[in-house]
Design a protein around this nucleic acid. Structure first.
Lengths: 331, 331
DNA sequence: TTGAAAGCGCTAACAA
DNA sequence: TTGTTAGCGCTTTCAA
């Protein structure tokens, strides 16, 4: 393996000059620099990241923690963060915390050593734990805001409010919110938004669940909704909504004729399922990019004061919502 | 930050004893060990990975290179590799090579320093380049086999053959293969399998494309297929097939009444699109797990001889294929 | 079973 | 502008 010493020898300079030529080219004489760089290229020299991070204290690695790697929401996020960290010359390590608070805690503590900073997606930590973590390692949270922590928040609640308005204007009077995980901050916000909009429009909204944010759980959610006698459901996320669609179909019910369905996030698949899902479009990839940019900024200038960025989300109406079913008359 | 020295001081031993207590507990006296471990826990000591990898030469990191992070095929793969590397105590770094040979080359060379090994998904490298890379760094390829390189290959070609049989038995006589990227090894294999099966069953198969493996490209593919006058298409992957479905719908054509559509891989979405896609089910997640296991084995015992594992893929028939349209009679 | 000491490859004062 | 040198935190001989 080629080391800095080999390059130094080959170009007839000291190792510090090589080091400078690599890291701060402007600090070395142009001709020397060229000679060193040529030798380095010749020998195919690549600085050891281990040694580099040992001395510099920086690993040029960013961590992305997601609660469930199988959820398409996080795919979009991964795209966003990966792109930005790559451009900035950082590697990204990807960690699945499997919806477990303990695992998340553990990985935050562990990653603090390997990464220069962390992006936490949909953290399940308590406010205190999250704030404490933010004091340990530079960190930006996505869809999880708490004092003392920089974050990017997607305003899906307002989209959910729009969805309730939409349903009300279609004549629905009884709707249900299909709740996501209890520990999800977004879930609480969405349900609150649904309640407020329901009050405002004078319709009745109840909560069903909680359900795991998966397609499988959508089946149970669908049954619960039918049993509750509502004419429309707003799901915590598209995955649950997709599961609802499937279960309703299997039970011989039509969407939106028998039941209207609204998803949330507009993740992969929600536009080509059947019928296409009315959902709240969240700029997830952009959120990932923004969070990475904020983290990068944090690394440059240690925390002036935590920032919270809110990204708008807007209702996208597609085929899964329609007028409330009229009571049939026998002919 | 707590270092090995702090723990040594706190427990009244030398740093080498602390080091041993952490890395090779059996080499240190039980009572001493307990004392050291207690002190370490007390001080919340975590060995620096940088220092560790500098001395040990191992980074406990595995790299996963994918050509396109937005392709659902790779999501399933990420799941598989991530799970296994996590269990083995390795971090995973994720790299998007953006379908670029140069970027792939670059990242392989770069990652060789940071990672202990690499999983290359659908490598676009030439045989020589790939074999050369494998000599540089422990590596397992997925869906890309070449002498001297360990790999996991999913037998989608045989599934494609089954698909042709299936179409033939439905009465189709003219089908098209919607080609993926030229540099894709899988693409060549699939097209060959389609040709062979077509010859065997006595139907005509032609190739259309190449098309980028995206939903967007599926639109162009659909138009090309209609223009070619075929009654069925077999797409390089589900993404293209999904795009075809959409385009056909937009053009007012029905699937499978006017055209049968077959996808490949059975990735997320292919079961809930409309109509559900007949496709070749590839055990992608399992491939990711297997590749990681093989890589881990490689790390333990340096290459006995490269292994190739083939995983079976089987045709899954759903709603997007049906009998060939009968010429309508006017009534 | 333990400790002393020599690095691993690099960066960053400090001197020259 | 360049070189010398002292580490960064750890692992690993080698002795004791």
């Amino acid at each position: 393996m080629t080391t800095i010493h080999d390059v130094a020898r080959a170009s007839g300079v000291s190792i510090s000059t090589v080091s400078r030529a690599m890291s701060r080219p402007e600090q070395v004489n142009a001709t020397t620099r060229e000679r060193v760089l040529a030798a380095a290229a010749e020998l195919d020299y690549r600085p050891s990241t281990a040694a580099r991070s040992l001395t510099s204290g920086r690993s040029m690695t960013l961590g992305l923690l997601v609660p469930d790697i199988t959820n398409p929401f996080f795919f979009d996020l991964i795209r966003g963060t990966q792109g930005r960290s790559a451009t900035a010359g950082y590697h990204q390590i990807l960690i699945d915390t499997q919806e477990s608070v303990e695992l998340e805690q553990h990985h935050i503590a562990a990653s603090a050593k390997e990464s220069d900073g962390l992006v936490l997606a949909a953290s399940r930590l308590t406010d205190e734990a999250l704030a404490a973590a933010a004091r340990t390692v530079p960190l930006v949270a996505i869809n999880r805001s708490t004092p003392g922590v920089s974050s990017v928040v997607i305003d899906t609640p307002s989209g959910m409010g729009q969805a309730v308005d939409h349903l009300a204007s279609l004549g629905h009077r009884k709707v249900a919110y299909l709740s996501g995980p209890r520990s999800s901050w977004s879930n609480a916000r969405r349900w609150r938004a649904v309640q407020q909009a329901a009050r405002r429009t004078g319709i009745s909204a109840r909560q069903l669940g909680p359900f795991p944010p998966t397609r499988e759980a959508g089946a149970a959610a669908a049954d619960a909704a039918v049993h509750a006698g509502v004419t429309a459901v707003l799901a915590f996320n598209d995955l649950i909504a997709l599961g609802v669609l499937r279960r309703l179909f299997d039970r011989g019910l039509s969407v939106p004729e028998d039941m209207s369905v609204v998803g949330c996030d507009n993740t992969f698949g929600s536009d080509f399922c059947h019928p296409p899902l009315t959902t709240v479009s969240a700029p997830i990839e952009q959120a990932g990019q923004l969070a990475t940019d904020m983290l990068l900024a944090l690394l440059r200038s240690p925390v002036p004061s935590p920032r919270v960025h809110e990204l708008p989300a807007v209702l996208t109406i597609r085929g899964s919502t329609g007028p409330v079913p009229r009571p049939r008359r026998s002919e």
